[in-house]
């Protein structure tokens, strides 16, 4: 049960990294917006009694705003420069989480982010009688909605523009697309998506700490998108499923998980540099199914 919920939660970050890759940008910093979402939603429900759905919306807003602010000065950066700028931003956010001491007394107990000590007692789910199964259904339901939205966008003109931006921004510019404005929108959307994952993550774990949002999560989500494949929205989900599901679920590789997974990924990328479900496979599958 926990594994299934985790797969769902991490999928949100993986999808936000995937969205940026489609637009031709590689981000090392999606974990920062995941963290912004987790902290925002946690503060809202645990300290001010806001219901989770509204808190999740607030988290998405905060994530989008943070991503917008990071995106604005870094819009013209590409490749490694953009990756490093997003990494720097995410690390700054993580350190800010370490510096925040913002607590309120609730029922005689201090509640709220306490720097490196973390943020305990995000118990909205528990207090409102949501069963673990119910929460799992909620996470996967939201993920389902996000996937559907992705599928709709990818079939639309918007999706074509997105991929064109990734392939050839100059061509896109010549065709009259406001490349900067469009990219800023993508960055903010990806930030909101990661933040939604963070909000759900905080309420699943009931405890978050700044370390949860370090570079490991960010690079993992990039890796998930790349292993699973860049051809379809199901690619990143497959990546998460392979790592967390197959390897953590089965205890066969206990203690050697990263050795197995790491080697698998490196070898896989030699043969399939755009992942298992890359554009060619997706195209072939579509033709087969049609």
């Amino acid at each position: 049960m926990g594994v299934l919920t985790n797969i769902g939660l991490i999928s949100f970050v993986a999808l936000s990294a995937y969205l940026l890759i489609l637009a031709g940008e590689m981000s090392f910093g999606q974990q920062g917006f995941f963290g912004v979402g987790a902290y925002t939603a946690g503060v809202a429900t645990a300290m001010y009694g806001v219901p989770l759905p509204i808190a999740a919306l607030m988290a998405m807003g905060a994530g989008a705003a943070a991503a917008f602010l990071v995106g604005l000065p870094t819009l013209r950066l590409r490749g490694l420069y953009f990756a490093m700028a997003t990494l720097a931003a995410a690390e700054m956010l993580r350190i800010v989480f370490e510096l925040i001491h913002f607590q309120r007394e609730i029922d005689g107990e201090p509640v709220g982010p306490d720097g490196t000590q973390g943020f305990r007692g995000i118990r909205w789910v528990f207090e409102n009688g949501v069963e673990r199964e119910g929460y799992l259904a909620m996470v996967w339901g939201l993920l389902f909605v996000v996937v559907i939205l992705f599928l709709i966008v990818e079939r639309s003109k918007l999706g074509a523009t997105l991929r064109m931006l990734g392939e050839d921004p100059e061509l896109a510019r010549m065709l009259g697309i406001h490349v900067e404005r469009f990219k800023l929108g993508v960055v903010a959307t990806a930030g909101a998506l990661a933040a939604l994952g963070g909000a759900l993550y905080a309420h699943h774990n009931t405890y978050i700490e700044p370390r949860n949002f370090d570079i490991m999560l960010g690079v993992h989500s990039l890796a998930y998108a790349l292993i699973g494949g860049l051809g379809t929205v199901f690619g990143p989900l497959l990546g998460v499923l392979i790592d967390i599901g197959a390897l953590e679920g089965s205890r066969v590789f206990h203690g050697y998980r990263m050795i197995v997974f790491g080697g698998l990924v490196a070898v896989l990328l030699i043969f399939r540099p755009r992942g298992l479900l890359d554009e060619r496979v997706v195209h072939w599958l579509k033709r087969r199914l049609a």
Partner: peptide, 13 residues
């Protein structure tokens, strides 16, 4: 990107 992600995978190893 593939090269970089592959090098990250070996980092884990």
């Amino acid at each position: 990107i593939a090269a970089m992600v592959a090098s990250f995978a070996l980092w884990m190893q």
